[in-house]
Amino acid sequence: MGIAERKGRARAEREQKIITVARLIAEREGWDAVTIRRLAEEIEYSQPVLYSHFENRDAIVAAVAVEGFKEITAALQDAASGSTDRAKALENAAMAYLSFARKHPALYDAMFTLQTSLRFAEPETELELKAAFKVLAAVVAPFCVNVAVVAETFWAALHGLAALERSGRIRPNVRSERIALVVRAIVASGKCTSARG
């Protein structure tokens, strides 16, 4: 292994350590506790070293979010592939989404609520974000013509349910009924489109 390769590997390892520790602090104490100063203390790197990897805290949050999109993509794929029935696959993906949001609140916040430079639905959108959307699109595709619009609506419904559940503003014991309603709406929209088209 050459010097350049070793340096590149060391840099990647430092960057991953920063991301991992930021996520751990956020999971334990919330994102307000994640500062460049705190990360430097926890990791025992100087603040300039952190800034050599990430422009600011928002960039660290974005890096954590990208990891989250990799994880939610895997969770959604696993859930959707667990059934040959397309409506059941849609339901499984919805339940997996809500479960992910509940189990990883700090990560979910990095992905969807905190300020980052991540861009959605644009040509320069990161591949990890596109992959997650692609899974949602795949589970709604059998039921619609305009897959992108239905996938965005499905995502919006899931995000709204996740936010309301996390804040305790809706009853947790009727999640299955809410998901069944969302699934029925998507399945029915496909039938209506087919009948018209």
Results as ranks from 00 to 15, higher is better:
residue 26 A to Q: 08
residue 26 A to V: 08
residue 27 E to G: 12
residue 28 R to A: 14
residue 28 R to Y: 07
residue 28 R to F: 05
residue 28 R to L: 10
residue 29 E to L: 11
residue 29 E to V: 13
residue 29 E to H: 13
residue 30 G to L: 03
residue 30 G to R: 03
residue 30 G to K: 01
residue 31 W to K: 07
residue 31 W to I: 09
residue 31 W to P: 04
residue 32 D to G: 15
residue 32 D to C: 11
residue 32 D to R: 13
residue 32 D to A: 15
residue 32 D to Q: 12
residue 33 A to R: 11
residue 33 A to Y: 00
residue 33 A to P: 02
residue 33 A to N: 07
residue 33 A to V: 11
residue 34 V to H: 00
residue 34 V to Y: 01
residue 34 V to A: 10
residue 34 V to L: 02
residue 34 V to P: 01
residue 34 V to K: 04
residue 34 V to C: 05
residue 35 T to Q: 06
residue 35 T to W: 03
residue 35 T to C: 06
residue 35 T to K: 07
residue 35 T to A: 08
residue 36 I to M: 15
residue 36 I to F: 12
residue 36 I to Y: 12
residue 36 I to G: 15
residue 36 I to Q: 15
residue 36 I to H: 14
residue 36 I to P: 15
residue 37 R to C: 14
residue 38 R to L: 06
residue 39 L to F: 05
residue 39 L to E: 02
residue 39 L to M: 07
residue 39 L to I: 09
residue 39 L to K: 00
residue 39 L to C: 04
residue 40 A to S: 05
residue 40 A to V: 00
residue 40 A to F: 01
residue 41 E to G: 13
residue 41 E to V: 10
residue 41 E to T: 10
residue 42 E to M: 12
residue 42 E to H: 05
residue 42 E to I: 13
residue 42 E to S: 12
residue 42 E to Y: 06
residue 43 I to K: 08
residue 44 E to F: 11
residue 45 Y to I: 04
residue 45 Y to D: 04
residue 45 Y to R: 10
residue 45 Y to Q: 08
residue 46 S to H: 09
residue 46 S to W: 06
residue 47 Q to S: 10
residue 47 Q to K: 13
residue 47 Q to Y: 06
residue 48 P to K: 06
residue 48 P to V: 00
residue 49 V to W: 10
residue 49 V to S: 15
residue 49 V to A: 15
residue 50 L to T: 03
residue 50 L to H: 02
residue 50 L to W: 00
residue 50 L to Q: 00
residue 50 L to C: 03
residue 50 L to I: 06
residue 50 L to A: 05
residue 52 S to G: 14
residue 52 S to V: 09
residue 52 S to H: 15
residue 52 S to R: 15
residue 53 H to T: 09
residue 53 H to A: 10
residue 53 H to S: 06
residue 54 F to M: 02
residue 54 F to I: 04
residue 54 F to C: 04
residue 55 E to P: 13
residue 55 E to A: 13
residue 55 E to V: 13
residue 55 E to L: 12
residue 56 N to F: 01
residue 56 N to Q: 05
residue 57 R to V: 09
residue 57 R to C: 10
residue 57 R to P: 03
residue 58 D to W: 04
residue 58 D to C: 11
residue 58 D to I: 02
residue 58 D to A: 12
residue 59 A to P: 11
residue 59 A to W: 02
residue 59 A to L: 10
residue 59 A to K: 07
residue 59 A to M: 07
residue 60 I to C: 07
residue 60 I to P: 03
residue 60 I to K: 01
residue 60 I to A: 10
residue 61 V to P: 08
residue 61 V to E: 06
residue 61 V to H: 05
residue 61 V to W: 00
residue 61 V to T: 10
residue 62 A to R: 01
residue 62 A to M: 02
residue 62 A to F: 01
residue 63 A to T: 07
residue 64 V to T: 07
residue 64 V to Q: 03
residue 64 V to Y: 04
